[in-house]
Simulated scan of single mutants.
Amino acid sequence: MFSLRLFVFHLFTMCVVSQLQSGDFVSREEVETLKSRIQSLETQLKAKQDRTPLISFRAGFSHDPAPLKYNNGQNVIFDKMYLNDGNAYSPRSGMFRAPVSGLYLFTLHVLPSSSEMEFRIVKEGSAIAYVVATHSGGTESIQTAIHLHKNQEVWVVKVYGGDTLRGSLLSTFSGFLLRTDDGNFHSSSVVG
């Protein structure tokens, strides 16, 4: 909230300076009107922030290395929860179900301990992002923002490759709500 106030103060200052440079002077009444408008905008923003639910999760594997007992095309189940605000991710099914409509950000980190592997982040059966991880000792990552309607699901699928990933915090799936829908946002396209 402090940075918002600083931004609003800076904007207010720029307006006053602009008027002073142009030779116009700001009356006390105009300053009071601007202060009142700033306070109103701060109140509206705070009310919107208070209505935004906290939805976030981060899941990994309970074993290291984590054997993937999945055939190609099956869901990868990250079974160890590090964070699950809003309980939208199920460590039993590996599915994230959106509790509210809005814009979400998902991240997948994978570190294979065997051969090359490909993974996809999937929304309702359609791939929205993918990553190919090679057995080179480094973690591969993908991050994507996507609009979800309430109750739509997102999960990770193993497409092909080896049978073992490094577990614990080395291979993780995470996501969080960036913002809820308002009257101005109805896109269902992938942002990143």
Rank of each mutant, 00 (worst) to 15 (best):
S115N: 12
A88F: 07
V76M: 08
V26H: 00
L111A: 05
R97E: 10
E30V: 14
N72V: 00
S90K: 06
F25E: 12
L177P: 05
Y89E: 05
R37E: 06
Q49K: 06
G175M: 14
C15R: 09
F173W: 04
T43R: 11
D64G: 07
Y89W: 07
R120N: 12
S171P: 04
S188Q: 11
L177C: 06
S188P: 01
R28H: 04
I146A: 09
G161E: 03
T134N: 14
N184T: 15
N84P: 10
A66T: 01
G183K: 12
I146V: 14
L68G: 02
Y130P: 03
L34M: 13
L177Q: 05
G192M: 09
S56P: 00
I38P: 00
G86P: 09
K150M: 08
V191S: 13
D64Y: 05
Y82G: 13
S90N: 13
G86W: 11
L20T: 15
F78I: 03
H186R: 10
F12G: 04
G183T: 03
A47Q: 06
P65A: 12
D50M: 14
L34D: 11
L4G: 03
F185Y: 15
R179K: 08
S141V: 07
G102K: 04
L4V: 13
I121L: 15
G23Q: 08
D64K: 02
T33K: 15
H186W: 10
D79C: 07
T180C: 07
M1F: 06
T52M: 11
F106Y: 03
A145P: 00
F185T: 11
T33I: 15
M14P: 00
F106L: 10
A129K: 09
S188T: 12
S188I: 02
P91A: 13
F9R: 08
S62I: 01
T144Y: 04
S113C: 14
Y82L: 15
Q143I: 01
F78Q: 07
F106M: 10
I121S: 03
S93A: 10
L41R: 04
T164Y: 05
A127F: 02
S93F: 12
N184M: 12
S171L: 09
P112Y: 05
S18Y: 10
R92I: 14
R37N: 11
Q74N: 14
V17Y: 12
T144A: 10
H63G: 10
T144I: 15
I142E: 01
E153Q: 10
K69D: 08
K80R: 15
D24Y: 11
M1R: 02
G175A: 13
F25L: 10
L178F: 07
S168V: 04
S3Y: 06
P53R: 08
F57D: 05
V191K: 14
G162D: 08
G162T: 00
P112F: 02
S189F: 09
L177A: 06
S114E: 06
R120G: 05
V159Q: 03
V8T: 08
V17I: 15
N72G: 06
G161R: 01
S171Y: 02
L177N: 08
S168H: 08
G125M: 11
L11I: 04
R51Q: 15
S168E: 15
F57V: 13
L108C: 09
H10V: 09
G125D: 15
Q152S: 08
T164W: 04
V17R: 14
K46Y: 01
S18W: 13
R51G: 03
E30Q: 11
V8D: 03
I142S: 05
F96R: 02
K80D: 12
A88R: 02
